[in-house]
Amino acid sequence: MGNTKIQLLIWERESINGLIEKAILDADGRGVRVLSLGLLNQAKQLNGGGELFTKKYPKLRVRLVDGSGLATAVVLKSIPLDTKQVFLCGSSSKVAHATATALCERGVQVIMNQKKEYDMLKLRVPESSTGYLKFSSDEIPRIWIGDIIDDKQQRRAPSGTIFIPTSQFPLKKTRKDCTYLGSPAMKIPETMQNVHTCENWLPRRVMSAWRIAAIIHAQEGWNMHECGDDMMDIEKVWSAAIRHGFIPLSKA
Score class of each variant (00 low, 15 high):
3 N>D: 11
3 N>C: 03
6 I>M: 09
9 L>F: 08
10 I>S: 02
13 R>P: 00
17 N>Q: 05
18 G>W: 06
21 E>Y: 03
24 I>S: 03
29 G>S: 11
34 V>M: 01
35 L>K: 00
35 L>Q: 01
36 S>D: 11
36 S>G: 15
37 L>F: 00
43 A>T: 10
43 A>D: 13
46 L>K: 07
48 G>F: 08
52 L>F: 14
53 F>P: 02
55 K>V: 08
56 K>R: 15
59 K>V: 11
59 K>R: 14
63 R>I: 00
64 L>R: 04
67 G>M: 05
69 G>Q: 01
69 G>I: 05
70 L>D: 03
71 A>R: 08
71 A>V: 04
72 T>E: 01
75 V>S: 07
78 S>D: 09
78 S>H: 08
79 I>K: 06
79 I>T: 08
81 L>Q: 13
83 T>V: 11
84 K>S: 10
91 S>L: 06
92 S>N: 15
93 S>M: 03
94 K>Q: 13
98 A>T: 10
99 T>S: 12
99 T>R: 03
99 T>V: 15
100 A>L: 03
101 T>F: 04
102 A>T: 05
103 L>C: 07
107 G>P: 05
111 I>F: 14
112 M>F: 08
115 K>D: 09
116 K>I: 13
116 K>E: 15
117 E>Q: 14
121 L>M: 09
123 L>E: 15
125 V>D: 09
127 E>L: 12
129 S>L: 09
129 S>Q: 08
133 L>Q: 04
142 R>V: 07
142 R>C: 09
144 W>I: 11
145 I>H: 05
147 D>S: 13
147 D>A: 15
148 I>Y: 14
149 I>E: 08
151 D>Q: 15
151 D>V: 15
154 Q>K: 07
155 R>G: 01
158 P>F: 10
158 P>I: 10
160 G>D: 05
160 G>Q: 02
161 T>L: 06
163 F>D: 01
167 S>I: 06
168 Q>N: 12
169 F>M: 11
172 K>N: 14
173 K>W: 04
173 K>H: 10
174 T>A: 05
176 K>N: 13
176 K>P: 04
178 C>N: 02
180 Y>I: 02
181 L>H: 06
182 G>P: 02
182 G>R: 12
186 M>H: 02
187 K>M: 10
188 I>V: 15
188 I>T: 09
190 E>W: 03
193 Q>Y: 05
193 Q>E: 13
195 V>T: 10
196 H>I: 15
197 T>M: 12
200 N>A: 07
203 P>L: 03
205 R>E: 04
205 R>W: 01
206 V>P: 00
206 V>Y: 06
209 A>N: 02
211 R>M: 09
212 I>W: 02
214 A>G: 06
215 I>C: 07
215 I>Y: 05
217 H>W: 11
218 A>R: 07
221 G>K: 03
222 W>R: 05
223 N>V: 12
228 G>F: 00
231 M>K: 02
233 D>E: 12
236 K>P: 01
242 I>L: 13
243 R>S: 12
243 R>M: 07
245 G>R: 11
246 F>P: 00
249 L>A: 00
250 S>L: 08
251 K>E: 13
